[in-house]
């Protein structure tokens, strides 16, 4: 017999290295000879979309379009260390470092413009569309390109951002070991075959707090990816450790979901800007996975009345539990 059930799971997740560990990202912003903005950062793109999001942050900070950003990442030869692409920290931590470096570069451009345009102060000066101009008298303007041509040495600023966390007090368990936190809720509907123990996830919905959605499409991709990982972790992925040896050591036996196992995941992006984030953004890479497995296990309970306390809930384990219940 096939039985359906629904379940909800909620989670929160502290991003970054945490626990008072110095979580540092560095970034450099440079005026290139053609008037474009060079961003040099050690952040690694692993498919999560860091290159896109970090370029968007730079373009926003400099008031230019994304085509005017020259982005250099990953190479340790010419980029400063931005820490690992881990702990869901690149958008928040490195995003902040890039924003700070761009703001410093902008200030540098303003001081050069004051000199070139024979102005008295920085008051009323705007930086926009690859030029620096006086808002009350826009004719008084100089383009990034002209500034670059006039430079005798490169105009380049390096900034760093360090997340604010404290070590947890061992005795009391008190402290602020992570910042910021990201929140999410999953709802799923499953169908359990009570004769074989096979669980199919029919539908899923994810409400994910993102601080600020810098790139909604990439966020949706993160949610799909996080859910498919959680689906495997909840129902399929079993290392079968025996005396320290992994028995399922190939993809024919270590089962991960394919596209046919994925339900459609409805996404609700919740924007509640984080004051310390770049334009309010927070990281979601890991948080999108946290609450999905609990939601699936709750839905199994709702469908067949069995509380599974070990993952993955493989057909063997669920059928055994169903028979014990009878």
């Amino acid at each position: 017999m096939k039985k359906r059930g629904i379940g909800i799971g909620c989670g929160f997740y502290g991003t970054g290295y945490g626990n008072g560990f110095p979580d540092v990202s560095r970034a450099r912003a440079k005026l290139e000879t053609d008037g474009k903005i060079g961003i040099y950062v050690g952040a690694t793109e692993v498919g999560q979309g860091a290159k896109t999001v970090l370029q968007q942050i730079a373009a926003e900070a400099m008031g230019v379009s994304i085509e005017d950003i020259k982005f250099y990442c990953e190479s340790t030869e010419n980029t400063p260390d931005a820490g690992t692409a881990a702990a869901s920290r690149q958008t928040y931590n490195t995003g902040n470092a890039i924003k700070k470096a761009c703001e410093a570069l902008k200030e540098g451009l303003i001081y050069i413009a004051i000199d070139k345009l024979l102005l008295n102060s920085a008051v009323g000066i705007r930086v926009e569309n690859k030029k620096v101009y006086l808002e009350s008298y826009p004719q008084s303007a100089i383009s990034f390109e002209d500034i670059a041509k006039a430079l005798t040495e490169p105009l380049c600023f390096e900034e760093s951002f360090t997340a604010g966390t404290t070590k947890m007090e061992e005795e009391s368990g008190q402290g602020a070991p992570y910042w910021p936190y990201t929140f999410s809720v999953y709802g799923v509907e499953v169908e359990v075959d009570t004769q074989t123990g096979f669980v199919e996830v029919l539908k899923a919905v994810c409400a994910q707090d993102v601080g600020r959605a810098i790139n909604p499409q990439l966020l949706e991709g993160q949610i799909d990816g996080g859910f498919s990982m959680a689906l495997g972790y909840a129902l399929m992925e079993d290392l079968r450790l025996t005396n320290g040896e992994i028995r399922n050591n190939r993809f024919s036996s270590y089962i991960i979901p394919t596209a046919l196992d994925m339900p459609e995941v409805k996404k609700i992006i919740v924007e509640d800007p984080e004051v310390t984030g770049p334009y309010g953004a927070k990281g979601v890479g890991e948080p999108v996975m946290v609450a999905a497995a609990p939601a699936i296990l709750n839905a199994i309970y709702n469908a067949v009345g069995v509380r599974m306390r070990e993952i993955p809930v493989t057909p063997d384990r669920l059928l055994e539990a169903l028979m014990e219940k009878e």
Binding site: T196, F198, D261
Partner: peptide, 12 residues
């Protein structure tokens, strides 16, 4: 057929 997933599954 009962496999461990819907595609690319060896029959159990």
């Amino acid at each position: 057929k009962l496999g461990l997933r819907k595609a690319l599954a060896i029959s159990r």
